[in-house]
């Protein structure tokens, strides 16, 4: 079986502007693949081009070299005008900023994708309501984003993508901006939701603990120009208890190995 998503020798440099030279390579010769139902985490130091990598996969940015295969077919483009963000709804993207629409209430933000995709019906509404319950947002449906806490906004952004069920979901440090306690809770929520559907997830983070707690497999990015420096399979069985992840057998050894690879 071919992998669901395959990245082949991907490279990226930003184009010349105002007579300046093009930027040095941000990503170079970067290759990896993701199997269906896999939870892949990617760890890298800040400035390693993690966001750039996800932007290219989600097609909000172009690649300068290499190829991306989705379900075995190439979806690569070099032309910024030919980009298809989210490539026909097959790739969901939870960004670092929640990017909620400030003029829509929680429920309307969650229903937005269904609305624009013309999939709004009783079944999808019920599904949205179930997700809202599952992440503890019940009672906050009519609140506007500015009335929610940071953690609640993250949850809303998360289920806004889960609700339309894209085959692959990219996550760019979605929990980086919240406090440690909320982050652990959000991680637990995410794992619980993932166990329900076993979506394919590519989760980028600079936090090694997070990468171990969530992933089946963790890739380590090198400094710029970034490529895959190492690959680790996480030996911790599921379901995992995120709060006590430090105490679980295998954690300490994996942590040490990854830390040695992250420069």
């Amino acid at each position: 079986m071919s992998p669901l998503l395959e990245i082949k020798k991907l490279g990226k440099r930003f184009p010349a502007r105002h007579g300046r030279e093009p930027s040095p390579w941000v990503l170079q010769d970067l290759s990896f693949s993701v199997a269906e139902g896999e939870f892949l985490t990617i760890v890298g130091p800040s400035g390693a081009g993690k966001s750039t990598l996800l932007n290219i996969i989600a097609q909000t940015d172009t690649a300068s070299a290499g190829e991306i295969l989705l379900g075995g077919a190439s979806v690569t483009t070099r032309d910024p005008r030919a980009l298809k963000p989210g490539i026909e709804r097959r790739i969901g993207y939870v960004t670092q900023d929640d990017n909620l629409l400030p003029w829509r209430s929680t429920i309307d933000n969650v229903l937005f994708a269904l609305e624009v995709q013309g999939k709004l019906d009783d079944a999808s509404r019920a599904r949205a309501e179930k997700l809202i319950q599952a992440v503890g947002l019940a009672g906050f449906e009519t609140y506007y984003p500015h009335e929610l806490s940071g953690g609640m906004r993250k949850r809303t952004a998360l289920i806004r993508t889960l609700v339309y069920d894209p085959p692959i979901i990219l996550m760019d440090e979605p929990f980086a901006a919240v406090d440690a306690q909320t982050r652990t809770q959000l991680q637990a929520d995410l794992l619980r939701l993932w166990e329900m559907g076993r979506k394919t997830i590519v989760f980028v983070t600079h936090d090694i603990t997070e990468a171990i707690a969530l992933g089946d497999r963790a890739l380590v990015l090198s400094k710029q120009p970034s490529r895959i420096a190492a690959e680790h399979t996480i030996p911790i069985p599921r379901p995992r208890n995120v709060k006590d992840i430090f105490a679980l057998p295998g954690f300490a050894a994996t942590y040490e190995k990854i830390r040695a690879d992250v420069q």
Binding site: A58, G86, Y93, T95, N99, L101, V116, Q117, Y164
Partner: peptide, 15 residues
């Protein structure tokens, strides 16, 4: 206009 909101909407499938 925040370009990220437009991009988010497009990823979610907005025409």
């Amino acid at each position: 206009l925040d370009a990220r909101l437009v991009q988010t909407a497009q990823i979610l499938g907005a025409s």
